[in-house]
Write a protein that binds this DNA or RNA. Structure first.
Lengths: 205, 205
DNA sequence: AAATAAAATGAACGCTGTTCATTTTATTAT
DNA sequence: ATAATAAAATGAACAGCGTTCATTTTATTT
């Protein structure tokens, strides 16, 4: 029996190794410039081996997108030490943007690329658990805000969606290089300045 | 001289034909599933001919992104008949979302994909004129709002950027199928409901 | 040491974007 | 009208892509 257990662990280890190699290359040279052959070469295995452990490229991308969410969730969980929900909400948006900028390829994979969603369609569990969990943390924080008397006249879910969109939009414009190509007066601080407008706005709700 | 003129017109016509074929296929089956061979076949020309009229695929994608902006600008210009800037701003966001949903592939090309921006880097004029013009219309409207006494304590550019991000974020989440995969209570109306929260918010600024 | 099972392999397939020598078509000069 | 020239269109060929699968290598069991 111990052999079977060990085999299972070895399989998991190699799967993790492939993902690790893939992520390294993604960060280094971008997702679209990373090939299965690159990944195989990176970890000194053949192309065929990758396909023993993953159904296809979408499978790899989906697993990597899940890893990204684990990281983002840990960013969020840290902020849950903050008692005041409004203060927490403000910090969450900032952490979200920080994550997106520092992990732009992963962010794109998690929130923009089709691959992870297409993988869901082919799989048994069609729910986007990763997205639900992360968004749940935002929703919960906003719910706490409303329970505390903030944001009167607003509805939890639509407001949470609006906040998510606002921050997500900033991240997208930034990582897709649309900010620096629109001639802002202060292109270097517009992201910060824009987020500041959002903070001011929150106070007026 | 008339020959040269005619030749020039023919060249323009064929270029336009290629773009028309490309756009048709993009809408039909998505950008990433459209190949140069597809485009050539669609208009009954050879692959080589496409490369006589366009430097590479990015060149085609950039021209198509420009065409998309012409359409979006016309959406916006229509709304400039509305006198009250705040009313206009509200309608602009709605028109923007409508455009994104009805032309999701084009929208992705215009605001998310790397191709048009990469083409800019290789060209003489590195400015993103299309983006500047469209965003200029938003900026101008918000400026009018501030001049009229709305949005006190806010700054034009950062606020315009925030508004753009908010609406852009909603569009991205929708067209990248992140909305319908997060279990909203009312997934069918969340986009509308979320935009409504934004409208309520505008009133409080 | 032989038989069996599991894991890793890499050549091959049909795609992709791109190039460029060759052919076809159109224009100009005689 | 015919020959010479210029312009335009072509498609085979190249390297690289994701993916498959018969074959080989390695590990386990008998």
């Amino acid at each position: 029996m111990s052999t079977i257990d060990r085999k299972a662990k070895e399989k998991e280890a190699l799967k993790a190794l492939i993902l690790k190699g893939a992520k390294k290359l993604f960060v280094e040279k971008g997702i679209e410039h990373t090939t299965i052959r690159n990944i195989a070469e990176e970890i000194n295995y053949s192309v065929g081996t990758v396909y023993v452990y993953f159904k296809d490229k979408n499978d790899i991308l989906h697993d990597l997108h899940t890893i990204g969410f684990q990281e983002l969730d840990s960013y969020f969980m840290e902020l849950y030490t903050i008692e005041d929900p409004k203060e927490r909400l403000k910090k969450m948006g900032f952490a979200y943007i920080k994550f997106a900028i520092e992990n732009s390829e992963m962010y794109d994979l998690m929130f923009n690329l089709k691959a992870p969603i297409e993988f869901l369609k082919d799989s048994e569990n069609e729910d986007w658990d990763e997205g639900c969990t992360a968004f749940g943390l935002v929703k919960k924080t906003i719910e706490e805000c409303i329970n505390k008397g903030y944001f009167k006249g607003h509805n939890v879910e639509p407001l949470a969606f609006m906040v998510w969109s606002l921050v997500h939009g900033m991240c997208c414009l930034e990582i897709h290089q649309r900010i620096k190509n629109v001639n802002f007066t202060n292109p270097d601080t517009i992201l910060y300045d824009g987020y500041n407008e959002y903070l001011k706005m929150i106070e007026k709700l």
